[in-house]
């Protein structure tokens, strides 16, 4: 339970027939999921499928209109904010910061749940380590407002890592990252999973999901269409139907699964 070594025990998470209503519309309809430590779970699906909404319910940001979302058997929306923040860290899309905090300040905010605890002694070490993990240590004294999108995303990730929680809920953490940093981050998350953490990630990159996830949850129309190993879920039929675009899948391609849109007549029209 120290900030340098192991995490707090990872509680199970469970969504049971969760229905979420936003602006009068049902954005999630009967979502049921069981999640536990030691799992890398990827939520995939088309735009507007409800992936971020599911993540928001798991994070405790939005309460289901019916059904339940629990952590360790307790309804998340009823949990104390401080207790919850020691168990799960969240990275949302659009992590804008209005004021020119330094990168170090922002990562330091990840230590807030541990203030007034013995673990606060490890704050500086945890912040430095988190920054070097995602390759932003050299930006420590820069203002976040001056960084590029990809750099800001990595800073947000560093903050999430500094929070030192057994559960990580991340909405498109790699969307703005270059190839090297995407692999760095996903590899790092794999490492966390090996250490017993639960990592739930919204991913648009289906190939990355196939390569890194233990379990893929295919979301469409606000509900779970399929859940299971990448090989079970990410089939040509299922993906083509969900994305309404022909997709070719080869899980045994050299260098990892190949999942690509079928571009008839070549991607570029020949003149």
């Amino acid at each position: 339970m120290t900030s340098t070594g192991a995490w707090m025990a990872c509680p199970d998470m469970r969504a049971q027939s969760a229905v979420l209503v936003r602006g009068g519309a049902k954005v999630c309809d009967g979502v049921s999921l069981e999640l536990r430590g030691g799992e890398f779970v990827a939520l995939v699906g088309p735009n507007g499928a409800g992936k971020s909404s599911i993540l928001a319910m798991l994070a405790g940001d939005l309460a289901p209109a019916s059904g339940s979302v629990t952590m360790g058997g307790e309804r998340i929306v009823d949990m104390d904010a401080r207790v919850l923040a020691r168990l799960r860290a969240v990275m949302t899309q659009g992590t804008d910061v209005t004021f020119p905090f330094s990168v170090r300040d922002v990562v330091q905010m990840g230590r807030y749940p541990w203030s007034d605890t013995p673990d606060a002694a490890g704050d500086d070490a945890a912040v430095s380590r988190a920054m070097s993990f995602v390759d932003v240590a050299h930006l420590a004294d820069r203002t976040v407002t001056s960084l590029s999108g990809g750099e800001r995303a990595r800073v947000a990730l560093a903050r999430v890592l500094a929070q030192h929680t057994p559960i990580l809920l991340l909405d498109e953490p790699t969307a703005a990252l270059d190839i090297r940093h995407q692999e760095l981050v996903l590899g790092l998350l794999r490492q966390r999973v090996a250490d017993g953490c639960l990592v739930v990630v919204v991913l648009h990159d289906v190939q990355a999901a196939a390569a890194f996830a233990d379990r893929v949850v295919l979301v469409d129309g606000g509900t779970v269409r399929a859940a299971g190993s990448p090989r079970e879920v990410l089939t040509a039929e299922a993906l083509s139907a969900t994305y309404q675009f022909p997709v070719a899948v080869d899980h045994d391609a050299p260098g990892g699964a190949s999942i690509v849109p079928v571009r008839r007549g070549g991607a570029r029209p020949s003149l």
Binding site: L84, T95, V97, M109
Partner: peptide, 15 residues
């Protein structure tokens, strides 16, 4: 400091 990030992020961080 945390509230200036917006309510959701502040809550994620234990506020």
């Amino acid at each position: 400091d945390l509230l200036s990030l917006g309510d959701h992020q502040a809550r994620h961080l234990g506020v």
